[in-house]
Nucleic acid binder design. Sequence first.
DNA 1: ACCGTTCCATGACGGCCGTCATGTACGAAC
DNA 2: GTTCGTACATGACGGCCGTCATGGAACGGT
Lengths: 228, 228
Amino acid sequence: MADFDKNDMDTFCRAPFFKGLARQTVERLFAVGDCATFAKDTLISSIGDNFGTVLFVISGLLRVSVCSASGRRITFLLVKEAEPYNLLGPYLNRSRFLEAQALEKTRCLKIRDRDYLKFVEQHPAIVHNILQWIGKSLDSANSRLLDLMEKKVETRILRVLSTLHQKFGSPLLFTSQEISEIAGTTPESTLRTMGLLREMGILSTQRGKIWIHDPPALKDTEFGAIKI
Amino acid sequence: MADFDKNDMDTFCRAPFFKGLARQTVERLFAVGDCATFAKDTLISSIGDNFGTVLFVISGLLRVSVCSASGRRITFLLVKEAEPYNLLGPYLNRSRFLEAQALEKTRCLKIRDRDYLKFVEQHPAIVHNILQWIGKSLDSANSRLLDLMEKKVETRILRVLSTLHQKFGSPLLFTSQEISEIAGTTPESTLRTMGLLREMGILSTQRGKIWIHDPPALKDTEFGAIKI
DNA sequence: ACCGTTCCATGACGGCCGTCATGTACGAAC
DNA sequence: GTTCGTACATGACGGCCGTCATGGAACGGT
């Protein structure tokens, strides 16, 4: 418990995932877990292994992605502070094909599968939060499916920029490569699109940084938003 | 309760979703629900409404899809007997953008959101089943994302045919239109691909029917399977 | 200050596949 | 049996966008 301070718990209590939970419940969650710190670029779980540990990011950023046979990476999720990773892992005793990596130095609350399962049993209130979170993830995945089937690359990139802006603010610290891995396209297409947006005065770019000047212009909403 | 017979419960008890649950639990699930029968082509929930009811199909088939602005339909899920629909709806008190429709005459066990929430609270064992089911759905959605970003149309159609064959056997009672709505392509592309497969002797087709002669030939697995 | 690496930027090309068009065949209804 | 609606089948065209190539700029390490 010495690993965590009161501040960490405060942050969690205010975060969307923990909404509606008693502070005591959050404290007990901390009590059943350990602190784990991953250096930048650490591979936390790789494809094929049976990763049953649940993580809650305290500070830093995790990327959940796969690297396909053709060498292209596809990013499913970015996990930031007070967000959970692998909520369902302990319930699926089979290897998943996802890979998690720390994009920067990341400190996590780490909970072993058995402790997690026991905790959920003993604190049924959290089931509500878990299901809500997963539900949003599922809706988001479906929205992205729709985007990929329906929309052109430019629209998808717009959506990704908009979503990232909502989640991380401005400037965005991502390269065109990283953007393209989320949008499902190539760095070249991303750069071309951002070139257009720059001409339109909607954003400006620097090596690894993107300033969004006109967030509403990115909104092209049809149906639900995606969640990254 | 007179709406259901012992046979219905037997089917459910044997089904994957209910694996590991006591028969008594299944019986009580039936007890809190009503029987609902939908005629073919009935729209069960449409886009934008706040559909909080959980359904378990007893017989028949439901399609979960969206119809995009450009008029193209995209099918996310086919729900067959002993499978659940809208497991998470009661936990997400916001309108979802999915639309459910009965593809044939379909009989369901219908459970109102409040009854469902109460049931889950009183029967924590089912949480495990729910999370497992949702976990598979999430993995499946991610697999489809990967397919759409990575694979060409032919491969996707192959995957869809393979998955449908596993779930429904042979012959498949789907039109090229319906296949394309799952694979995220057009009927023309689907027909062209199936033309090739027919020449290779892997399948044969008739109006609305597809016989798969060589299921292994359809397998081109990389990473997880999709689930339709 | 030099150099290597990484990222940005932009042009040219080509192929996949979505769109349109046309014709055929099957099945249901009367 | 005739008719009509729907699905199958296949060809032609065109555009989006992925790939390759080239050059320049920014940053870090020594």
